[in-house]
Design a protein around this nucleic acid. Structure first.
Lengths: 201, 201
DNA sequence: GTTAAGTTTGACTATTTGGTTAACTTTACA
DNA sequence: TGTAAAGTTAACCAAATAGTCAAACTTAAC
């Protein structure tokens, strides 16, 4: 027998929650152990050190996320429908993992190389989207706009509100927290329309 | 004599840099002292504790930032010009303080109340912008869109690329870091046009 | 049942780090 | 110029926390 799958799963589940919520420096090994209801020594038995555990958590988060993102991009059909589908699916995905965006933002600012290496090694690439955009510009389906900017705009509109949730609630929604979920729901349509209205001819 | 202005300035200057870069938990008092080239005890002599120092840093950052933001919003004239001016000035402002956006994002996710209280107590409020947007919708100058969403879209498009810089470089610019500054420059026009194209009638 | 390998535990250690203290130096000014 | 207050320093302290270890326990194989 080599390693108890159950225990290491419990550790990973707890660790991902706490790292995502508190960041690397804010996370206590004891807190992970408590949440997993195991002895703290087991963390080291299974994962050697805090750094190693964190590394594995990041890797899992990225590898879980990237295929999902790619899956909701469908460049085969109508670009307007592609935008609607992507925005809707992406916002839904982010809502289900509300801590992931700020976790990644945080991590990427602390250690850009590590995360970038990971992303690249996972074969993630958006060139096919850029190509699709450029094709539709050439065909006269959408107005002339840099594919890079259009892509970045789309991601910004989807991701930022979740990353900045407390600020959105505090400043834009005047503290009415309960309106946030409604706002996100609306955004699935609003954002798609906002983009489409901007690029259609 | 009551307190050496020079020393406390040096401390604040160093502290703001390090807190912004590393966050509260990632910051070491010793690191602040080293950067300021003073003895660590002086931090406590002048600011009592890490928490107090942090509080003051946030307060300074917020009080410096908010008036600048408000200053570049001019609701008196043409809404399209208002958008152009705001986007351009805001992106420039963020570029000059590249750590501020991710610092705020992090901070507000770790301890929402603290930062929000400060922002609110400073009298920051965006209702006047919402009113202006609604007026121009009613006048038929721009299409019907929720003021909250338009505001949030604008902020998302300006702030997100800076918060996620390493990801933008890695994924959208295929690792060509030197293109990032050019991208930001372009964005001053691209984002304004993107918004205007979307809301004009 | 015995054994050996894998797993779990609590007590312990080393280090990091925010904070204190007391001695020293400089400055203001009577 | 004497002295008291302000400013500065190094040495130290206590708490927090990552990491270690040996003993105890569990499981599976024979």
């Amino acid at each position: 027998m080599k390693y108890n799958k159950d225990t290491s799963e419990k550790i990973l589940d707890s660790a991902i929650d706490i790292f995502q919520e508190k960041g690397f420096n804010g996370t206590r090994m004891q807190a992970i152990a408590d949440k997993a209801k195991i002895n703290k020594s087991l963390l080291h038995y299974y994962f050697k050190s805090k750094d190693k555990l964190f590394q594995i958590i990041i890797e899992k988060a990225v590898k879980l996320f990237i295929p999902r993102v790619l899956k909701v991009i469908n460049v085969e059909g109508d670009i307007f429908q592609m935008i609607r589908d992507f925005v809707s699916a992406y916002i839904d995905m982010l809502r289900k993992n509300p801590h992931i965006p700020s976790f990644i933002i945080n991590e990427i600012n602390n250690n850009p190389e590590r995360l970038l290496k990971l992303i690249k090694s996972s074969g993630f690439n958006v060139d096919f989207v850029k190509v699709k955009i450029q094709e539709d510009i050439d065909k006269g389906i959408i107005r002339d706009i840099s594919p890079e900017h259009l892509l970045l705009n789309t991601l910004s509109l989807c991701i930022f509100p979740l990353v900045a949730k407390p600020m959105v609630v505090g400043i834009i929604l005047n503290g009415e927290e309960d309106k946030f979920e409604k706002l996100l729901d609306e955004r699935k349509k609003v954002v798609a329309n906002f983009i489409i209205d901007s690029i259609k001819i």
